[in-house]
Structures are given as C-alpha cells and as structure tokens.
Amino acid sequence: MTSSLSNANLPNEGNPVSSTIMTVDDSPSMRMLLKAALSDLGYKVLEAEDGVEALERLGGACSAGNGPDLLITDINMPRLDGFGLIEKVREQDRHRNLPILVLTTESSDEKKQRARSAGATGWIVKPFHPDKLAAAIRRVLH
C-alpha cells in the first residue's frame, strides 16, 4: 500500500531566523567556535558553561517564552556532565521532544549508542566543519 507524497508538504528548511540554539560547553573557545559557526548560519545562540547553568538558563528562557529550539551540549563538563544534563532535560515533559545534539570527540559506535540511549537526538563529532554542523542541525531541528 503506497501513496504518493508531494515534496511541497515537507517542513521548510528549518527557518534559522526564528530558531534559537543553546550551546553548553565548559571551554570558552569551543563555545565561541560554536557561536561563530551558528551565527553565520543565522541562528540565535544562548550559551551555558556546564549542565547546571544550562538547566537554569533553559528554565529561565522557557519561562520568558523564548526557549531554545535545539540544545548542543558537550559531554565532559564539571558539576553536571552532558549525559546528566540530557537526563534532567528529558525528565521535564515540555522538553521530551527538544532536539539535543551532543558534541563528542569520539565517533565510535559505542559512544553514539551511549549518546542515543542517554536521550540525545544526534551528535556532532569534534572538530566539526561548519557544513557538517549545519547538516546535523538540519536533521534534527523541527
């Protein structure tokens, strides 16, 4: 049983102008790299330097009605690491469907599986090329 599907029905190409991305990384240079790349792509960027700050900012931004459309988080961070952050975010009902990309230096299947089972939507392997970053975001940003 098949039915044809018109390409016109597809979601638009993730209109960046209206999309906000929160980046979480304890390294200022990595945050800046992300911000530079994401800004070039036309996204608005919120930043946090570890899981704890990310949760605070996420709560604050959502209360103010401008919550992020996507979360990009590092794994290894002090206080609350990336896996812990994802778990806490997914616990909140309103964020069950928030796309989350993890930044990882490993591209092994084991790490990917771990990211997925932790609740991540996808991953970006560091160091990232801006085009790859853009592609990864397109694949998950609603």
Partner: peptide, 15 residues
C-alpha cells in the same frame, strides 16, 4: 523519541 523526526530526513533527501 528524543526529539527525532523522520520527516526531517525526507527533507534532507529532497535537499
């Protein structure tokens, strides 16, 4: 689950 959406993949293919 986890914010995934297969339709986005269809969009990627069209791109």
């Amino acid at each position: 689950e986890n914010g995934g959406d297969p339709l986005l993949l269809v969009r990627e293919l069209t791109m």
